[in-house]
Simulated scan of single mutants.
Amino acid sequence: MTLLDPADRAARGVETAMAVTGRTLQPPATPFEESWRDFIFAEIWARPGLDRRARFLIALSGAAATHGPPAQLEAYVRGALASGALTLAELREAALHLAVYGGWGRGGLLDATVTQVAAELGLPPAEAAPIRAAPWDPAVRSEEGAQEFATVMTFPGGPPATPYLEAIRNFVFGEMWCRPALDQRARRWITLVGVCESAAETPIRSHIHAAMASGNCAPDEMQEFVLQYGVHAGWPKASVIQGVVFEMIRKVAAGLPWNG
C-alpha cells in the first residue's frame, strides 16, 4: 500500500480509524470528514514514531482539554478500551491527572465519558486506590512530595511558601504522581497536553525538558507529540510547542537545565 494512491490512502484511513475508534468509519460527506479519514487517521495515527498507547493518551487529553465534539472523545475512549491500549482503571487515573493539569472541569468531562462508554460496553467498575486511605504525618507527606517532584521534574522544587505551592508538593507530587495505576511515561503525555493548553511558558518549558531529561520520552517521540497534539489544539498552538521542543532537545543533549 502506498499513500501516493488516493484509494490506498483512504483504505488505510478506514482501517486505522476502526482500530482507533472501535467502529466502522462512515464514508465522508464533507471535506472536513474526508480530512479525518485521509490525514488524521491515514497519516498521523498510522505513523510508526509513537506507540498507539501514547497516541491515545495525547488524543484523549487533547479532545477533553479543547472541548471537542463529544463523539470524538467517546470514540477515543471506546477504541482505547476495545484495543486494550488502556484499561478502565488507567482511564480513571487519566481523568484525575488531566484534572490537575487541565482543570477539574476537563478532567470531569473525560471521567464522565469513561463512565458512559464503560456502561455501554457492560464493563464492571474498575478498582481504584483511594487518594489517601490512612492518616499521615504532614511533614512526611511534604518530604515525599518534594522527593517525587525532584524525580519527575529532574530538579528540586522550592519551599511551599503559598497554599498553591503547598498543594503542588503535597497533592500533585505527594499523592497523584505517586499513584501506581498509571505509569510515569503515561502521565507525561497527559501532563504535556495540559501544560501546552495552558499557554503558560514556565510549565511548558520545564515539563517538555523533564519529559526528555527523565528518559520517559525520546526526542523523536516529542516531535510526534507535537503533531498528535496539533490535531486537537490546532497548528498555531502546536507551532509554539514545536519551537520549545527544538530548544529543549538541544538543552537536554548538552546537559543544560530548562532555564539555563
Rank of each mutant, 00 (worst) to 15 (best):
I241A: 13
A7D: 09
A186D: 14
A161S: 14
E143K: 15
G62W: 07
A134K: 14
W189Q: 03
A17K: 11
G49S: 07
E175I: 13
G62V: 12
P70E: 01
F246I: 12
R187M: 07
G68P: 02
I249G: 05
R106K: 13
S206H: 02
T162Q: 04
I204D: 00
L98K: 06
T151E: 05
L73T: 03
E143M: 09
V244S: 05
L3C: 00
A11H: 00
T115K: 13
G122I: 02
T2D: 12
F41I: 08
A10N: 09
Y164H: 09
P69V: 05
M18C: 14
F173K: 03
E144G: 09
R185L: 03
D137H: 12
E120P: 07
G13I: 14
V152L: 12
D220E: 15
A65V: 15
D51A: 08
P203L: 01
T162D: 06
G194R: 02
G145M: 10
A167W: 06
T113L: 04
A186N: 09
V100R: 03
Q147L: 04
M222W: 00
A59L: 13
G79V: 08
A134G: 11
P6T: 04
L256T: 15
H232I: 09
R205C: 03
Y101S: 00
V226I: 07
G243R: 09
E74A: 13
R78E: 04
Q223N: 10
P124D: 11
A118W: 06
A211P: 06
A112H: 15
V240S: 05
A254H: 14
V172D: 07
G13D: 11
M222Y: 00
R169Q: 13
A94H: 05
G105N: 08
G174Q: 08
G49F: 07
S61Q: 01
D38S: 13
A119E: 08
W136Y: 14
G157E: 12
M1I: 04
Y76R: 11
S198C: 04
R78L: 02
A89D: 07
G13R: 12
P27D: 08
G230L: 01
T154M: 15
P28M: 12
E221P: 00
F173A: 04
P124H: 15
T87C: 05
F39H: 03
T151A: 11
G49Q: 08
R47I: 03
D111P: 03
A253E: 10
P6W: 05
A186R: 11
P257G: 14
G84H: 01
G145A: 10
G84K: 02
G84F: 00
F39S: 00
V240L: 12
T154W: 11
S83F: 13
T191S: 04
K237N: 07
Q72F: 08
R179V: 08
R12P: 06
W235D: 02
P6E: 08
P130C: 02
F41D: 04
P28C: 10
P156E: 03
S214P: 05
F246V: 12
L165E: 13
R169H: 13
F246M: 13
Q223Y: 09
A82L: 12
L60F: 11
L256F: 13
S198M: 01
T154E: 12
P163D: 02
A133G: 09
A112S: 15
L88G: 07
D137R: 10
T113G: 09
L60E: 03
R37T: 09
Y164D: 02
A211Y: 11
A218G: 04
A218M: 00
